[in-house]
Write a protein that binds this DNA or RNA. Structure first.
Lengths: 218, 218
DNA sequence: TCTTTTTTTTAGATAAGCCTAAAAATATTT
DNA sequence: AAATATTTTTAGGCTTATCTAAAAAAAAGA
């Protein structure tokens, strides 16, 4: 069985791996874990010893097949619990991350699968991120980003890329939620800001925000 | 914030304290924690340092007021999660203990209170044990034990005293559940075994089992 | 290419929670 | 009450996950 620390490393290594094809530097992993490079080295060597990462001294690290399976199991739990907290307990999507960070370490496959059934097999969590199935496979697609839409195109908001606290709070404030139908009214070439129509409300968002919103055509 | 180990000690010290008025021996605590007396001593001294137990060298230990409050909070979480697992996820009462042992350590008062609301403020967990309220107070009573009923008296099964795995499995097997109306048909003075009627089924249970079943008169 | 800077690893320390073995205190027998 | 047995505590180690400081390797710059 893995310790919570080991699980957290695997999860963050997975997240970093999503962003690049290359080997991950020890430094980048240490930064993600908010720890020192020496601590990361220790842990990477331990995980390598357990066959969960492929680690080459001074070269870099990536998840092994087995490590990826473990990581997906944790991501699955995290996203299911987030869904539970929002759908059943009435939390808002910007409040659930820290609690799910704890819940994701609960060990019981039966529990995870029953929770999945109880939630009626959701495909995405409240941030729009896809939920891996029992086999660790992500079935659903993530859609395209709002910043790629052209003027007068519209679609449904299905996800948020970097679900940081501040972004979620901001979206709450300007009344944008998963499931909203968004139409692009104007794009300002100077700074890539986008004016959209959402529920008959006109809002201008920065290009940065537009890059973080996943849209599906309707 | 308390570590999981500290929380577990507090919870078990609370449970032991329920059984006796006297100071608890270091040995009894060590046994309950399935650890060595020297380890228990270490922890008791640490907890004493934090003001959570009153510990006197070579004399014994009991929870302080503050320690009891912490223990009750953990018991509350444990029992709420057990209720959730049975009522919402379809677990049976003999499957939930180990999972609740993990869930009871999740840190979030909001979560606990929302779970309580979601479950519609249950007064007892699936084993019939009372659930402390937000202030750590137990409101409901536990009832009397089946072994104290006389012939022809009847009542409703509201709880199980020592909810061990084997007892719960046994009760499942003989078709006895919380909420059943049980009538005493006969008591054998030789070994205190009790013959009862439950759902038009006659069953004879040992005196030992009868001492572990809480009954409320109807 | 040779220095200098940056990254990564190693070495040694620390805190938590456990262990064994030995010492100290308390309880029980005789 | 003295001897013996039991309980409890102390002392010293071990493991995990972290840290700092120093050494080694790799990358960047002159």
């Amino acid at each position: 069985m893995l310790s919570q620390a080991e699980e957290n490393y695997l999860k963050e290594i997975y997240a970093l791996g999503e962003e690049t094809e290359e080997l991950l530097s020890t430094n980048s992993i240490a930064k993600k874990m908010r720890t020192k490079a020496s601590s990361a080295t220790d842990m990477l060597q331990k995980l390598a010893g357990k066959g969960l990462v492929d680690y080459t001294k001074y070269k870099g690290t990536r998840l092994s097949k087995e490590g990826e399976a473990k990581a997906m199991a944790i991501v699955r739990k995290h996203r299911l619990w987030e869904t539970f907290l929002v759908a059943k307990l009435g939390f808002s999507w910007d409040e659930v991350h820290d609690i799910a960070e704890q819940l994701e370490h609960i060990q019981s496959k039966t529990l995870t699968n029953r929770l999945d059934a109880f939630l009626e097999y959701p495909s995405h969590d409240p941030h729009g991120h896809p939920i891996p199935n029992t086999n660790g496979k992500i079935v659903a697609s993530e859609g395209i980003i709002l910043a790629d839409l052209k003027i007068n195109e519209k679609g449904v908001l299905v996800g948020v890329k970097n679900a940081t606290d501040s972004l979620l709070k901001y979206l709450n404030k300007i009344n944008i939620t998963i499931g909203d139908t968004i139409k692009v009214l104007d794009i300002e070439p100077f700074d890539d800001s986008v004016t959209i129509d959402n529920n008959a409300q006109q809002i201008t968002i920065s290009g940065n925000v537009a890059k973080n919103l996943y849209i599906k055509y309707r």
